[in-house]
Design a protein around this nucleic acid. Structure first.
Lengths: 162, 162
DNA sequence: GCTGAAACAAGTAGTGT
DNA sequence: ACACTACTTGTTTCAGC
């Protein structure tokens, strides 16, 4: 299948910058006992390959007032409305993620709202008004037990899991 | 309610570093026509307040082999098994997020697997084996239409939405 | 609470092996 | 593909407003 290939250096660099995007390259170089500029070159290539996209600061949603997190499954009146519903959902800034899914729902979204009342208003006054939406089911998150990034352990191996 | 207070500078800094965690502080200062060191001070305070947690590089899961993304709702045999089930789920590295939720399911998780076959194996051989799990429903993501961070427009205002 | 300059550290590019 | 050096740029701290 020969897709991307990652060696030990790539993997270690990813492990380090992923958790701290502002970690000095020179420090990474020191840890790995390689030159400063090699780190720079590798990261450049990882970007070119599309393995790393961007570095972002993680803002705590709760700290800026978004206390209610909820997943919401959306049922459509008919399947062919999918695209126009997605276009409508995109206009609602509280919706942070939107997926086409298999199973009970056609579309599955993630919403952050100020509180439950706010969530209800978004659903009733905005989502339900989009032409093609038949109904929604909400899965309000009482608590997020954990949240982490994808494992890098399988890199470079290539991968038998059965 | 007097929770956190954010002025224009805080908001602008957040907007800029959120999308590019490695943007030089000096450049931010220039954009806002404030001193280099004020940017530094403000970011330090935002960290202390817990508004920003860390800077992370975003790794493209598909590029490192995780082609199947799925949300999975978990039903419990009895509600009181919740905690021990979460402990079991935490041991499965392909599970990237785990929430207690309202509605049909007790627990709602996000899984990234190599492919559908791998996903099935994780569910059957790991998740379903955890004591307390009655069953699961999967919502496999065919496509992610969009994905973004929470809006910062409500900062500093304080907020009436009804 | 903010600025500005000075000391320090890191990022970048070019050259050679 | 990598390391070394020289150069440019950013970060951090602190005195002073």
């Amino acid at each position: 299948m020969s897709m991307n290939h990652f060696d030990y250096i790539d993997q270690q660099i990813l492990l380090q910058i992923r958790e701290d995007a502002r970690k000095p390259f020179s420090q990474i170089a020191e840890n790995l006992k390689i030159s400063n500029s090699l780190v720079h070159q590798r990261i450049k290539k990882l970007k070119q390959r599309g393995v790393i996209k961007k570095a972002e600061f993680v803002v705590d949603e709760k700290q800026i007032g978004f206390k209610t997190k909820s997943y919401v499954g959306i049922r459509l009146r008919e399947a062919r409305y999918a695209k126009q519903v997605v276009d409508g959902l995109k206009e609602i800034p509280e919706i942070l993620e939107c997926n086409y899914v298999s199973g009970h729902y056609a579309i599955f979204i993630l919403i952050f709202a100020f509180d439950n009342h706010h969530l209800r208003k978004i659903l009733y006054e905005q989502v339900h008004q989009i032409d093609g939406v038949a109904g929604t089911d909400s899965f309000i998150c009482f608590d997020t037990n954990f949240r982490r990034q994808v494992s890098l352990n399988s890199l470079g191996k290539n991968i038998s899991y059965d």
